[in-house]
């Protein structure tokens, strides 16, 4: 096979896959699943942010849902208060959360690992307190745009994506663009500098890597995609509540990204599916909600134990074996995948 062509066919295949998802999911699934899967695609964005920080730089951030809440708040405030169109809302949410993300990188420049994780958890708790106290904009006046009484206002969906199917495709397109961008950045000089920084910050600095700027960039990117997710949820639901953006959800998402595989887009998707589709499936099977929580907790522990590199790596390993078998090539089985989280050690 032509080498150049061979290098491109995975990308083409992925694009084809995304288009297929966009066509098939709304046709093949009922309204409940479509809504669940829309949320899964939205959640894959903050999952990508967690994956970027943890997989590339070994940094733990537990603020993803807090930033999503912030993005959602901005979208509702500007959309309901001033009638801005969806693209502008998304832009505003992305820009503002990126700025907040950059601010959050200040602790990240000074603190590491567990310290950073716990600090980001406190930030997440603070945002949740603020969201509970301020409420999401619902048609009121003032800076907060919240009213205790009076008719509840909702954010309308954009005219080109009013149906659930169209909105799913809109969300999918956004996720595809983000994943593509993340992939490009990871393969660029920036990505290589991240990898070096994760290995040894001292070595990176002596090699002339601008560590500070690169960390700020990573945090801003992770926050921005969360802000994007928040704006998309706001558009999906029309109204929001703080319970969607609790700190516990961010911890859970982190655990799921580790389980799925922090370094691969497949891992981010798996994390998002585990986050929303798995509980929904248990519900479909008639499992009591509390029992489902128990199963979920046990699954988190079990998967952290059994798949250090994340499920994505296992799938890829299995996939490679399968391809090898199909092609009938005699080569050693797929090498052990690099341990995603072990990278910085």
């Amino acid at each position: 096979m032509n080498r150049a062509l061979a290098a491109h066919w995975p990308t083409a295949l992925r694009l084809l896959g995304i288009v297929a998802l966009g066509v098939l999911v709304p046709n093949q699934f009922g309204a409940g699943w479509l809504s669940t899967l829309t949320t899964c695609v939205v959640v894959s964005l903050p999952a990508a942010g967690v994956g970027l920080l943890y997989g590339e730089l070994g940094l733990t951030s537990l603020t993803q849902f807090a930033f999503a809440g912030l993005g959602g708040w901005i979208a509702l405030r500007l959309g309901i208060g001033f009638g801005w169109p969806m693209p502008l809302l998304i832009l505003a949410a992305v820009v503002v959360t990126a700025v907040f993300g950059a601010i959050l990188s200040i602790p990240a420049l000074r603190l590491r690992d567990l310290y950073l994780a716990l600090v980001t958890l406190m930030v997440a708790a603070s945002v949740n307190i603020a969201l509970n106290a301020a409420g999401f904009p619902n048609g009121g006046g003032g800076f907060l745009g919240y009213q205790k009484v009076g008719k509840l206002s909702r954010l309308p969906r954009p005219s080109f994506a009013t149906s659930d199917a169209a909105y799913f495709r809109l969300v999918l397109a956004h996720a595809a663009v983000v994943f593509l961008l993340f992939g490009l950045v990871k393969r660029s000089a920036v990505g290589r500098a991240w990898a070096l920084t994760a290995q040894s910050e001292g070595a990176a600095r002596s090699a002339g890597v601008k560590v500070t700027q690169l960390k700020v960039l990573a945090f801003a990117m992770a926050a921005a995609v969360s802000g994007l997710a928040g704006a998309l949820i706001a558009g999906q639901l029309g109204q929001l509540a703080p319970s969607t953006f609790q700190p516990a959800n961010s911890i859970l998402l982190f655990a799921l990204v580790v389980i799925g595989g922090a370094r691969s887009p497949l891992g981010w998707c798996l994390a998002a599916l585990l986050y929303r589709a798995a509980p929904y499936l248990l519900d479909q099977w008639g499992v009591d909600g509390n029992i489902a929580t128990m199963i979920f907790g046990a699954a988190v522990i079990f998967n952290l134990l059994s798949a250090p590199g994340g499920m994505a790596e296992q799938f890829k390993g299995a996939g490679r074996k399968l391809i090898g078998l199909v092609a009938g090539m005699r080569r050693p089985s797929a090498p052990v995948a690099p341990d995603a989280e072990g990278l910085p050690a």
Partner: peptide
């Protein structure tokens, strides 16, 4: 689950 996102999903279902 006291979450509007879930409330929307189950209502659609």
């Amino acid at each position: 689950g006291w979450d509007p996102e879930k409330a929307v999903t189950v209502a659609k279902k």
